[in-house]
Amino acid sequence: MNLAIDALIGLGLVILAWQTISGRSLFRGIVLFVVFGLTMALAWARMGAPDLALAEAAIGAGVTGALMLVAYRRLVQLHPEEPAQPNRRRSRLALPIAALAAGLVAVIGLGAVSAEREPGMAGLAVMSELADTGLGNPITGVLLKFRNLDTLLEVAVLLAAFLAARTVFADEEKSPTPPRGDLPLVGALLAIIIPLTILVAVHLLLAGSREPGGAFQAGAVLAACGVLLILSGRLQPATRMGLAVGLPLVLGLLVFSLVGLAALVMGAPLLALPGLWTVYLIETAMMISIALTLVLLFAGASGLRRGDS
């Protein structure tokens, strides 16, 4: 029964992937890609990885889909009369190469699955160490205790992606979101959804220390607030980045580095986190930076300002 559900999800993934690749319209492709991401979230949940399910739903499907839709809209705005055609290349080698790649992955995977394994020596060592950190969620524990340099660099990569994209948005004049009139229902929706989303983000952030959740999931959820505010015109993209945007943008990196260096100064190894409160501090700062970076990437702008409405 369980295997049947897994098989159904797996089949769904394969079909959706194929449809995304081979569909005729680009817009349809984006929608299918989002559905693919949500199905991936289901697959993660089935594979016993709820952290990944949350991240995939929020970041993989939500944020990526939103970014793709924005890019698509820019393409259409630039040349409205010529919607992007699905120009496909013909290649006789495509199919054999794809089959070869799939075979390679299958061999690696099946080899790894069927290999005899020492029953989780490293894993057990990690788990025993984690008891000391006070973090109930092993994923967060691993991210912050054993691979904290990676996590730090991950935040840096996200920031770098934004800075790189920012040089590419370039000098074009930002057209402000047109005022949508004061649609009563949209105002009511915002007033209900946004406070609730903030609450859920804080919940995810804290929950990350003992159950699925964490700074990245919380940041992605918080970014959804910003996207809604931009779409409804309450926030407008701006060409200049003020301190009010710039400081929170680097806050995660800043706090993480400072705490990590402080450990070095006090004689502990680099990035050894002295207590649970530092974890909360770092995760909160990271959440704010991640959310803001994602929102700015969505807006395609260097800064934000309050809308007139």
Partner: peptide
């Protein structure tokens, strides 16, 4: 309900 009714209206 909220999401459905607002999106339907829009």
């Amino acid at each position: 309900l909220l999401a459905a009714t607002v999106s339907a209206h829009l």
